[in-house]
């Protein structure tokens, strides 16, 4: 069973101070830590678990700048067999990234393609499902469980309100993976060192025979901080004082 996993390197913004670039087109990224997109980590782990059951090969694929190699190394350390980095078309949007991925994927045999449901940074949730359409194969998004049997996959999709649906889908297919589908495995330093010996191929857009189309479907005109609107009343003072106020609030609201 040959599985391709498409991954993305993203900046971690959850606990960081965010500044906006002078041209207002994006946030400043030089002060941020980058990592493998959380959803993609689950997808890589799922691919490795399937490989342990069915044998075959796990190939990770990314479209991104030179620095993306560090997340490919992490994927290799997680158990992927080889990695490919494709030069990033600039500018790009989700559709163009899907087309770039398709160009490379079309050249080899595969049984299954996994992506994360969405990327932590811009959260479009578009690439996996668009990729399936470009490749002309079926897809299922927001997948929380995969069971493979005889050229078909029984997958569970996450719906709203705690509900899930069970689907049967013919392979090859694209599945976009939801967080929590498996238990991430600790990646040891030894595994990372070993991963550096595994094959990582680098390809330019010219080499894959892809010339980006213009204009893009979607372009960011500007970014801005959201309007503050209603803000919480921040309790101030020493921890003791703050908790004192908090206790009063709880007492009052509990009784109301």
């Amino acid at each position: 069973m040959n599985i391709i996993v498409c991954v993305k390197r993203i900046p971690k913004t959850a606990e960081a101070d965010i500044f906006i670039e002078k041209d207002n087109k994006d946030i400043k990224k030089d002060n941020l830590v980058f990592a493998l997109n959380d959803w993609d980590g689950y997808a890589v782990r799922e691919a490795v678990l399937l490989k342990e059951k069915f044998e075959g090969e796990v190939i990770v694929l990314t479209v991104g700048p030179d620095e993306s190699k560090e997340v490919l190394t992490r994927c290799l350390a997680m158990g992927a067999d080889r990695a490919i980095r494709i030069e990033e078309p600039i500018p790009n949007d989700g559709r163009l990234i899907a087309e770039t991925l398709a160009k490379v994927i079309q050249t080899g045999p595969f049984d299954l393609i996994l992506t994360g449901v969405q990327a932590e940074d811009d959260g479009w949730g578009q690439v996996g499902v668009a990729l399936a359409q470009i490749l002309g194969i079926p897809h299922a998004s927001i997948v929380t469980h995969i069971h493979i049997e005889g050229g078909k996959a029984k997958v569970r999709r996450e719906l709203e309100g705690g509900l899930e649906e069970l689907l049967e889908i013919k392979l090859p297919a694209v599945l976009t993976i939801q967080t929590g589908i498996n238990e991430p495995k600790y990646v040891s330093l030894a595994a990372i060192l070993e991963a550096e010996d595994k094959e990582t191929k680098e390809m330019t857009l010219e080499e894959i025979g892809f010339s980006p189309r213009e204009p893009l479907d979607a372009t960011i005109d500007q970014v801005s901080f959201p309007p503050t609107g209603k803000r919480a009343e921040i309790l101030k003072g020493t921890p003791d004082e703050v908790v004192g106020q908090l206790t009063e609030i709880i007492k009052r609201k509990k009784g109301s």
């Binding site: 965010i18 932590e120 811009d122 949730g125 479907d217 979607a218 005109d221 970014v223 801005s224 959201p226």
Partner: peptide
Amino acid sequence: DCIGLTFEEGKLKATRSIYGGKVNASVSLR
């Protein structure tokens, strides 16, 4: 995942919330 949507001169423009809700982006479609 739009939080705002409008037409400007026949072209669709959207507002999206990105980077975990820390920033809004104005997006123009072709």
